[in-house]
Design a protein around this nucleic acid. Structure first.
Lengths: 338, 338
DNA sequence: TTGTAAGCGTTATCAA
DNA sequence: TTGATAACGCTTACAA
């Protein structure tokens, strides 16, 4: 079997404690002895066993990252952000995909607790208040990202979804659009709800009467955007613009428009949300609301590390990024003759 | 602190061993006692400590997944495949991004070994023969994906990159193209090398003389595709087609072509590799070579689980997926007048 | 400075 | 069937 600290001690001719001390740079140890231990360890190809260490230290230097689906282009960027920050701090991250399924979420949380993670980051999942509450009560640090848990005292890094949605719709209104449809996100997610709220608010502020028929809910996937657009674009009079709850849905809308022979942006303006990498690659480029995904992941991990280290005590911190409208080619002034 | 098996034993009025037995469904235990233990555990909110269990069992039910960059759209699909398979088997996965940096790779492997993962999956990274060899020698199961390690006895799930590249180029040749450039991938990557080989071979088979000037290496990113295309498209006579080593680079090529006012597919045909989700969303749709990323990840994990369970002994298994050409809108017959 | 010994929470062996 | 008890590999007082 792989050598243990005991083997190292034996071949170095010292006691267990000494080996542990040099390996951890803790306590005094004569340089000469230290050298001998290091050589023995090297000679034996010793690899410290973190699980043994974790058992006594009651800390694992691992965290759990819970996201809906790594396959949705918004999440890889967030994930990379937390991974980079974690890695620099010597932490390793467990990745869990839930598909927004509450049962899956609960199961993942259970798994991660059993594995004694030092903390968890929830990103963009549905509002599972009890789960987070239980974790916090248990003393396990949590930070939620891209998802607000109402009234819960938990660290969070968010983006102002309502404001972003509002600016997207205002942009459309400024371009002369009045028949603005909303390809809404997942109904049970806070993110979807907030963007919907921003949409509603923008129309209201502009004095445009609400029209239930111009709203259709999807689930943030391309397919749902496509499906929803087929309904929305079939209405008469046809909307001249649609605000999609995220870029993936916007792509679905774009595809549906194309198949229906509706020219974008000439006959239809489309705006998305997220500004995933592909948004700028598309021709015409997708007008969208940018979320700093990588930075959000990174910050979430930073906050979590502070909690874990105990350097952040007391009330929860909330950081809100201001989303930014990125105007590209899928939006244009409404043709008054259209 | 959180209750331990000991607390459960005490409140159930039984011995430690009994609790362990009921929690693991191992050995005989009177239904009545069993019930009592379960109730006590439930009452106390007992959560088993996997690290303690791992210490004695010498197995952690965790694996390490090492990829270059989760932000490259090919990897999320693979990752999701391994995650799904792992999850079903009760395994959790540590995610590591290396950016193809050998130093990072070595560091991640070290970290994962310390954490006593039961196995590791390398996907699409550079050829780090010694790393894999050492792991195998140590008795740690490994499977490499989307990356061959020459002559090494390790399980692998691959896609026939050369064949895929060849069929892509043959497609171009069949369309009448002869000036075919190659926006090559990462030079140090087996994947990049094999696709390059397929390109070379296809031209050779068609009797098209090799032209060093039509080849430029990048690193699988959109930016590198863009950069490389600027050089390639500046040549005189201008190539009428380019085969990019992956879809991201193809997007870069597309962008460069557009900025140079070169119409695709009228004046330039472009084909990529991977068939990431976005390839089909683009207009015109990107002609590319499809790799079954999700299935590859899933199979890799299946093979790894078999090794871990010891149900697969002996020689390494190699599964090679046959890539499939997907013809969409970015390729067309060469205009003989062009 | 360095060695010894007592845990950390589980599993597994052995008597009972 | 069930209860002690000895590991698992390491950290950390506590002595020496």
């Amino acid at each position: 079997m792989s050598p243990t600290i005991r083997d190292v001690a034996k071949t170095a001719g010292v006691g267990l404690g000494t080996v542990s001390r040099v390996l951890n740079n803790s306590g005094y140890v004569k340089p000469e002895t230290r050298e001998r231990v290091l050589q023995a360890a090297d000679y034996l190809g010793f690899v410290p066993n973190m699980v043994a260490r974790s058992l006594v230290r009651k800390t694992t230097s691992t965290i759990g990252l819970i996201i809906p689906d790594i396959t949705n282009p918004f999440f890889p960027a967030v994930t990379r952000g937390v991974e980079d920050e974690a890695s620099e701090a010597g932490f390793t991250v467990f990745l869990c995909n839930t598909d927004n399924d509450p049962g899956m979420e609960a199961q993942d949380v259970k798994k991660l607790r059993e594995r004694q993670v030092d903390g968890m980051i929830f990103v963009g999942t549905t509002d599972r208040r009890e789960l987070v509450e239980a974790l916090l009560a248990e003393g396990i640090p949590v930070v939620v990202t891209d998802r607000q848990v109402a009234d819960l005292d938990v660290d969070s890094v968010l983006v102002d979804n309502a404001a972003g949605a509002r600016s997207a719709c205002r942009h459309l209104i400024d371009l002369g659009h009045a028949q603005i449809a909303h390809a809404a996100g997942h109904r049970l997610t806070r993110t979807g709800q907030e963007r919907f709220a921003g949409y509603t608010q923008a129309l209201q502020e502009a004095g445009i009467p609400a029209d239930e028929g111009l709203i259709a809910w999807g689930d943030f996937t391309v397919e749902s955007g496509y499906r929803v657009a087929q309904v929305l674009l079939g209405r008469a009079p046809r909307p001249t613009a649609v605000f999609a709850a995220n870029d993936m849905m916007a792509f679905g809308v774009l595809r549906a428009a194309q198949e229906a022979g509706i020219a974008v942006p000439e006959e239809l303006s489309v705006v998305g949300f997220d500004d995933i990498q592909m948004a700028g690659l598309f021709r015409p480029g997708l007008t969208t609301v940018r979320q700093p995904a990588y930075e959000m992941g990174r910050l979430a991990m930073t906050l979590l590390l502070e909690r874990i280290a105990g350097s952040a005590l007391g009330n929860s911190r909330h950081h809100s990024f201001q989303p930014e409208l990125v105007v590209r080619g899928t939006t244009r002034r409404r043709d008054p003759l259209g």
